[in-house]
Amino acid sequence: MSSPEAISGQELVRFQRVGLRYGRGPEVLSDVNLELPRGSFTFLTGPSGAGKSTLLKLCYLHLAPSRGLINLFGQDVALLSPAEQQALKRRIGVVLQDFRLIDHLSVFENVALPLRVAGQPRASYADDVVELLQWVGLGHRMQALPPTLSGGEQQRAAIARAVIAKPDLLIADEPTGNVDPVIGRRLIRLFTEMNRMGTTVLIATHDVTTIRELDARVLRIENSHVFKGLDPDKPGNTL
């Protein structure tokens, strides 16, 4: 694969007039233009059902747009072969709303999965996985199977899996939805740490308080279009 950095400028993700419909339904997203600069930290917000998860799916190559252009790491994703797409996915960490942990694998194995898929030898990452699990407060649950974890614990395992391979792009869908505020703040700190070390972060959330606490970029989906900043019509939203 050619070096993606060589092709493009500063944006890691760029949408140009992107539209998406599920099957023959209406367009969930229309005419979306957006850019995520390299190293940026962006929140994506909007009412339930607005299309946040859908937009994220386009970013992590789970869906292909119905129309328009998506550029990832400087490459037009429509032109990528399946193998190239998979190689790109290995540079993206994803935390899904429903966690998607593998039930028969221990928490340790779940978190180590991206490294294993990338073909790294176990000895090279075992300590990192343990350290990360301790950091997200799952040090005592490493050998547990996901179905025996609480929702918040599963969420933390999913986040650990998303960040373990130090991805260039981190995408999280409601990552603090199932945890108490203390853990939530800790997880957000994990994301800001990753961001400081160069990872571009895109987080979908309803949680306006968290958005306010961090002085980050905000994108908002409304009526299938994407706007910058929080809704100015709503009181207290000054961004």
Binding site: H62, Q86, R90, I92, V94, R100, I102, L113, V117
Partner: peptide, 16 residues
């Protein structure tokens, strides 16, 4: 299917 979709998500190739 669920396991495979996770594997695809973390970038596993068809060969893998």
């Amino acid at each position: 299917r669920d396991i495979i979709s996770v594997l695809v998500q973390v970038g596993a190739s068809n060969l893998f």
